[in-house]
Amino acid sequence: MVDYVLSLLRNGHRGPIVAMSRRGLLAKPHRHVDALQIDETDVPFGASINNLLRWLRDRIDRNATQGVDWRSVTDGLRPYTQRLWHELPRASKRRFLEHARAWWDVHRYRMAPEVEVRITQALDSGQLTLMAAKVASIEPNNTGARVTYRRRGDANPLEMQVGAVVDCNGIVKDPRATLNPAVRSLFDRSLARVNPLCIGIETDRNCAIIRRDGTASRCLFAVGPITRAAFWEIMATPDIRNQCAALATFLVDTASEDRPNRMSASDC
């Protein structure tokens, strides 16, 4: 949403902008702070989401009494987020996605200070409005669309005429809804399946794509955000770079082991 608003403002848009989401949250501003050094043995791997979030809040509160910014704690947790996600029970993953993901996202994916200034100006001037609400329906018309929505905590429907509607929900969606022909062909040919949480295609820890029958492919691998079901934090360039390096090492090692044999197309 922030990126799209900035693009509108850069292109000279002068009209009002309404940013609508269920909770009406805005990304927190970034500050130049050092990541806190967190010992791996202190991290509660395998804990339920309730216990994990309680541990994180307690860690932030304890460090705040010593003048440590909360950003230092969340950044210090970054080396362990993929393992935390991997070892989180499935029920806890579902609860996190339903109830806590939005709060994590606004603290984890922050606005640069110069972006914060521009967004704050738009909010203070009234050009940008944040609204905690849920869209009920969108009806296109000659001047844009008529949006029916409900404010958070209010059952009464309201309407708003807009010039355009932009979906800024992000990438945590069911990949079967994609229009990408390459991804769709994987599903059509039973070469891939969606993970139980419906947030990405299913892969193993070596990035091998899991086929519909539950077996791991020996020649089809995935990297980047589409593997978020297995790795969760896999959108930033450093994370993808590390993932690619690990996959390259795995492929080289596997090729050395398979060299005496010739792999046929059916092995894929």
Rank of each mutant, 00 (worst) to 15 (best):
165 V>T: 11
186 L>A: 07
187 F>C: 08
172 V>A: 03
213 D>M: 05
212 R>F: 00
157 P>D: 10
170 G>D: 09
199 I>C: 05
192 A>N: 04
169 N>Q: 12
209 I>A: 02
165 V>P: 10
210 I>H: 04
166 V>P: 09
217 S>G: 08
190 S>T: 05
188 D>I: 00
178 T>K: 07
177 A>M: 09
159 E>Y: 02
168 C>K: 05
191 L>Y: 00
217 S>H: 04
162 V>W: 07
199 I>L: 01
168 C>E: 06
212 R>Q: 14
186 L>G: 06
192 A>E: 05
185 S>Q: 15
221 F>P: 05
199 I>G: 01
187 F>Q: 03
200 G>C: 08
161 Q>G: 05
174 D>P: 09
163 G>T: 13
192 A>W: 02
237 T>C: 00
186 L>T: 04
227 T>R: 01
230 A>Q: 15
237 T>F: 07
221 F>T: 04
197 L>D: 14
203 T>H: 03
172 V>G: 01
173 K>Y: 02
157 P>A: 11
175 P>E: 03
202 E>Q: 15
167 D>Q: 07
168 C>Q: 05
235 M>Y: 07
220 L>H: 07
159 E>R: 14
231 F>N: 06
156 N>Q: 15
235 M>K: 00
219 C>M: 07
190 S>Y: 07
201 I>G: 03
160 M>F: 04
212 R>G: 00
179 L>M: 08
157 P>L: 11
234 I>Y: 04
183 V>T: 13
237 T>I: 15
231 F>V: 06
202 E>S: 08
174 D>K: 04
205 R>C: 09
189 R>L: 14
160 M>G: 00
172 V>E: 00
213 D>A: 04
182 A>E: 08
189 R>A: 11
164 A>G: 10
